[in-house]
Write a protein that binds this DNA or RNA. Structure first.
Lengths: 247, 247
DNA sequence: CGGTTTGTTGAATTCACTCAATCCGAGTGG
DNA sequence: CCACTCGGATTGAGTGAATTCAACAAACCG
C-alpha cells in the first residue's frame, strides 16, 4: 500500500483512530479544525520550558523530540514524536510548559488553537475522551521508557526504542515493509536512551552485525520484526492501540 | 498546624485543590461520591497488568508504588503514590491496565466506581478538566523521573526523589517541619531510581553524613530544605502546584 | 525467642564512560 | 573540480561509577 501524503486533517484522524474509534460526524468536525501550517528546520525549539502557549502543535512531517536538561547540562530526550503526534497536548491543561520540544529533522507542523480544540471538545464530548486518552497513552510511553532506560542493558534498550518507532510509524502508514525514515542522530538516540553517544554507536554496530537492523542514510530497515521484538523485549500493549490499527 | 486525619473526601479535595481550584459546588459534588474503604497489608498488588478494572483507587493512608518488570525479572518502580493520589486514574480511559500497583506499607484505600466518576464529570465539566489535569501532572512526574534516572548521578538522584516526596506530602499536610513518614525500603528506593540496593545504601549514608537527611525508623527528616533541594537539583515546576498550595 | 526481612560492609568486577583522534560524506566556495 | 568545512559516525585506550556476590549485623514480627 503506497499512501499518498495525507492532508493534515487526514493524518490527525488516522492517528487518533489508532487509539480511539471515531464516528463520521466526529471526523468531519475534526476536519473543520483550522490548522496553521509552518515549516521549520532541524534543531529548532518549538516550545520551551516556561512558555504559556495558546495553541498545540501537530507534527505533519519529520521528527521532533521532547527534552529536559539537568543543571550540569546533560540532556534527556523524554520522547520522540512522529507525524500525527501532538507533543504538547498537555498545554491544554497545564498552563506553564515544563519541557522543551525541538525538531530533530526538517519538519512541517500544524498549529491548532486551544480555543478551537476546547470548542470541539464541548460540542463533541467523546472527543474530550479521545484527546485525554491520547495524553494517557503518551504517559504510558514515558513509563515504558522509564522501565527501558532504568532496567534494561544498552543493547535491549536501543532495540526496544527502534521497535517502538516502527510500531508508531506503522499506524500512520510510515513504516511499510519494515522500512522507515529515522532521522535521529546517534547523539540523539544516546540522549533518549541515557547512554553515551560512543556507546550507542558500538551497540548499533552489534545490532547491525546481528542482522536486526540495517541502515542506509536515515533509512532504517528491520529485516526480521520478530527477532527485533524479542531482542528489545517489546510488547506493544503499552501503546494501547486498538485492534484494527494493529492488524 | 496539626491536622486531624481528614475524611476520604476531604483528603481527595485537598489534593485536587493543590493543582486545580474547586468551587464550593464542585467540592460538595465530590463529597457525595460513594467511596468503598478497604485496608490492605504491605506488598499487596492492588492492580495488575492486564486487569480491566471498573473502579479507581484513592490512597487514604500509606504508600503505594506503580511498577513494571522486565523479562529478566528486574523491577522498575515508575512512581510512588501517597495519600490523596489516585494512581490508576488512567483506567478511566485505558481499559487494559499496563502496569502494576502495589502497597509498600499497610494502606487504607478508597475505591471509587468509574461510573460514579463519569457521572460526576458529566454534571460538572470542569471536574473533567481537573481529573485530566491530574493525569497530566502524573505524566509530568514520569518525565522528571526519566530525566532524573537517566542523567543524574546516584547521589543527586536520590536527593531529588526525597525532595519530590516531601513536596507532594506537604500539599496534603503530611510533611510538617521537614519530617514525614517514608516507609519505602532501600530496595524500593533502588528500584525507583534504577540503582542497586547496595549502592542506594551507600548513597543514603553519604546523604546522612552530609547532613541532608536523618532517619529514625521510617521517619525521614530534612533539616535544611534548601540544601537538599540544591543537592537534588529540585525545581517543583513539574508538579504544577498552584501558588496557594505551594505557600 | 527463632525466623525473616532489611540494612550494612568488603572486595572484585564490569559495563559503560571519558577523552581524544580519526574517518567520512555532503555541502560550499574558490 | 578540488580544497575546505562541518556535522556525524567510528575507533582506541584508560578510567570510574556502580555492580555483583557474599557475608554479616540489626531490626522486626508472630
Amino acid at each position: 500500500m503506497t499512501t499518498l501524503a495525507p492532508t493534515p486533517h487526514e493524518l490527525m484522524i488516522r492517528k487518533m483512530e489508532s487509539i480511539f474509534p471515531l464516528s463520521v460526524e466526529e471526523k468531519q468536525a475534526i476536519s473543520a479544525l483550522p490548522i496553521q501550517l509552518v515549516d521549520i528546520k532541524t534543531n529548532q525549539d518549538i516550545v520551551r520550558e516556561g512558555d504559556e502557549p495558546s495553541q498545540c502543535c501537530l507534527i505533519l512531517e519529520g521528527f521532533t523530540c521532547m527534552y529536559k536538561v539537568t543543571a550540569e547540562g546533560k540532556r534527556q530526550i523524554l520522547s520522540l514524536y512522529v507525524p500525527g503526534d501532538v507533543p504538547d497536548m498537555q498545554s491544554l491543561h497545564l498552563k506553564v510548559i515544563d519541557i522543551n520540544i525541538a525538531s530533530i529533522s526538517p519538519c512541517k507542523l500544524g498549529f491548532i488553537q486551544h480555543k478551537d480544540l476546547r470548542q470541539l471538545c464541548e460540542r463533541y464530548p467523546r472527543l474530550t475522551a479521545a484527546f485525554w486518552r491520547e495524553t494517557l497513552v503518551h504517559a504510558s510511553i514515558f513509563r515504558e521508557w522509564l522501565l527501558n532506560n532504568g532496567q534494561r542493558p544498552a543493547y535491549t534498550r536501543i532495540a526496544h526504542l527502534i521497535c517502538e518507532l516502527r510500531m508508531r510509524l506503522k499506524v500512520v502508514g510510515l513504516a511499510e515493509n519494515g522500512t522507515f525514515e529515522m532521522p535521529a542522530t546517534q547523539a540523539e538516540l544516546a540522549d533518549a536512551t541515557g547512554i553515551t553517544q560512543v556507546h550507542t554507536n558500538r551497540v548499533l554496530q552489534v545490532l547491525r552485525a546481528d542482522g536486526l537492523i540495517s541502515t542506509v542514510k536515515t533509512q532504517m530497515h528491520v529485516p526480521d520484526w520478530n527477532k527485533l521484538k524479542q531482542a528489545g523485549e517489546f510488547d506493544s500493549l503499552y501503546l494501547h492501540l486498538i485492534k484494527t490499527a494493529t492488524a
